[in-house]
């Protein structure tokens, strides 16, 4: 290809800072990007395995050109969801704890109402 046209990488506008130390914002961005690249690699391995199972040789060209069908996409969606359960464990843990605490803030009378209402 003759020319490379570079697109703008940053959206204009001040980026919100979510943590007291801006280095944490950056570290989180890098961690999530890495999680994405691991998922990309995992799909690539999956592709190699599937090509091999189908008796095709998993050359780079064959892997790059592989287009997953609906069933393979669904299987990969399911894999990524449990992968994210694992990667984001600390978040899910906190969520579970908050869920218990939120339930505890409910007055006992509200629990009676809920049960009586059939919930």
């Amino acid at each position: 290809m003759a020319e490379t046209i570079t697109l703008q990488k940053k959206a204009r506008g001040e980026r919100p800072q979510y943590f007291a130390d801006p280095a944490i914002d950056k570290a989180l961005s890098i961690t999530l990007a890495l999680a994405g690249e691991v998922a990309v690699l995992r799909d690539r391995i999956d592709t190699i395995e599937r090509l091999a199972e189908a008796g095709q040789s998993p050359t780079r060209a064959a892997v790059d050109a592989y287009v997953p069908d609906a069933a393979v996409r669904a299987a990969r969606d399911a894999w990524r969801d449990s992968y994210l359960d694992t990667v984001l464990r600390i978040i899910h843990q906190e969520r579970e704890e908050l869920e218990q605490r939120a339930a505890d803030t409910k007055p006992y009378a509200a629990v009676i109402d809920e049960v009586e209402a059939g919930g």
Partner: peptide
Amino acid sequence: SDEFSRQEF
């Protein structure tokens, strides 16, 4: 396939 996987992620 890699580009597509990145988007799917």
